[in-house]
Write a protein that binds this DNA or RNA. Structure first.
Lengths: 263, 263
DNA sequence: CGCAGGGTTGACATCGGTCAAGGCCAGTGG
DNA sequence: CCACTGGCCTTGACCGATGTCAACCCTGCG
């Protein structure tokens, strides 16, 4: 099971290879430790509830989930998207109780990894560092998200979200060039950028009219990547992909397109 | 140097004791490792710049600093407040370059801790866990902040910020009952909750007229803590103080007031 | 066929932004 | 000591982005 490129590895492994330059030896170890019982959640179902103390570490393997918080009066704010390869609750090793909930945004497959498997991974310094780096990047994404909601207008914020998802999907091998599956609701989008569903709708119209994207039937196509990034002010440095971008470009079937991010 | 209560310990130690229940033995070790060269920054000066690779680990020891990001056109978003006892850049052990900057919001004293001192601390499992927990709480604060900016109105958001600062200041022993030093500008407040300075001004008037706070000469007095928390929808669970709140209440000179948060 | 969920649209309301003026106060230099 | 200046706070008039409400459409599905 030796491979030269990123291709063929499961999402989590791809992510760690891009992010932390994991070698094939460590990669194989990660791949070996991560399986567990698979559970399915349909759109809208909680994967982990607020206040809960999960017994396993959960990893998304297909579909799309989100972290979110609910206010008393029903307002909702999504604080992160979890795509295949993302761990839901590594922090429960230390924090005990969830201070937010996680739900499926589409039909989603989750693996319940036994804690001792994760502990075995953490015992290897290179892997522990890689996992730790990935949580630090999650933190950087949160900061960027605050900027998005606090200081960007509606179209900018949505555009930025799309740029980020595009790149993250590419990392785990789930983007087909410039199109990605994103079968979520405009209300969901609103809850992630702090807008009303109807305003999301109008903003999307805008982006479409400008020829930047198309979004239909749960497929997001980025028609003009450079334009979208310009509008959004998207600077991918906060994802700390560093030379992971180069690896990505090299292993891709369309190096020219991914190469754009190298600029 | 044995002490029964939290009192007398420096802010960082108090924080870790409240957060992770450090015992006196570990506390002393932390206190011993943390000194370093002290630097001063005046209001508005960067402590660490965007893109930089700090050589030391920086810790705020007095004053107030913030993490922030700048957009191309000059818009600014503050993503975190750093109060005494907070580390600025623990993540640079792993991430190499800063993806945001840190500046002083008031005259601020910062200690540059040599990396090997921090490494020595991390070598002790209980202390490493405590430090790790503190970065996880930082992450929880970021999530809460997204809710603040995305889903709360102007007054709610400001009120929530004040509640959070109040509690955090109490933890490190810098709140005098319900009043705290907060000599920052209304423009700064705006950049933290995503508002314009003039709207911050109007919102503050509101809070004052409702008898919830007073804010003058850099002193924030919380006149009606319960009312402010109700307006803000403040739920301190995300700070994961757990029984740290009980320790706080016990060691306080005014246990009745702090005890409120135990509800 | 009817229903439910989601997208779309229009009219209108509100919140928060913009611009501009004036006030207050501390620091500074004459 | 005073005048001036620069920050910051405050206020008012007005504007624009986003929210609210309501209707209608379309599609998938029971």
């Amino acid at each position: 099971m030796k491979q030269e490129s990123l291709l063929e590895w499961p999402p989590m492994v791809r992510k760690l290879m891009c992010l932390a330059g994991l070698d094939d030896y460590d990669a194989e170890e990660v791949a070996r430790r991560l399986p567990g019982e698979t559970i399915l959640r349909r759109r809208g179902a909680d994967i982990i509830s607020d206040g809960e103390t999960p017994r396993y570490v959960h990893m998304v393997t297909s579909g799309l989930a989100c972290r979110y918080k609910l206010l008393d009066d029903g307002r909702r704010q999504i604080t992160a998207y979890l795509i295949p390869g993302d761990l839901c609750d590594l922090h429960v090793f230390i924090l005990k109780r969830m201070d937010h909930a996680i739900m499926a945004l589409t039909g989603t497959e989750i693996v319940q990894v036994p804690r001792q498997n994760v502990e075995a991974l953490l015992a290897r310094p290179t892997i522990a560092t890689a996992l730790f780096k990935s949580t630090l990047v999650d933190e950087a994404v949160l900061r960027q998200w605050i900027v998005n909601v606090g200081r960007r207008g509606a179209r900018e914020a949505i555009a930025h979200l799309f740029c980020e998802l595009h790149l993250r999907m590419q990392v785990v091998g789930l983007a087909d060039g410039d199109v990605l599956q994103l079968p979520i609701t405009q209300a969901d989008l609103g809850d992630t950028v702090g807008l009303t569903p109807v305003h999301v709708n109008r903003s999307l119209q805008d982006l479409r009219e400008q020829g930047l994207i198309s979004l239909q039937a749960g497929r997001l196509s980025i028609l003009n990547p450079a334009g979208l990034r310009r509008l959004a002010g998207f600077e991918p440095d906060y994802l700390h992909l560093d030379d992971g971008l180069r690896r990505l470009a090299k292993s891709s079937t369309r190096p020219d397109r991914h190469g754009q991010y190298l600029l």
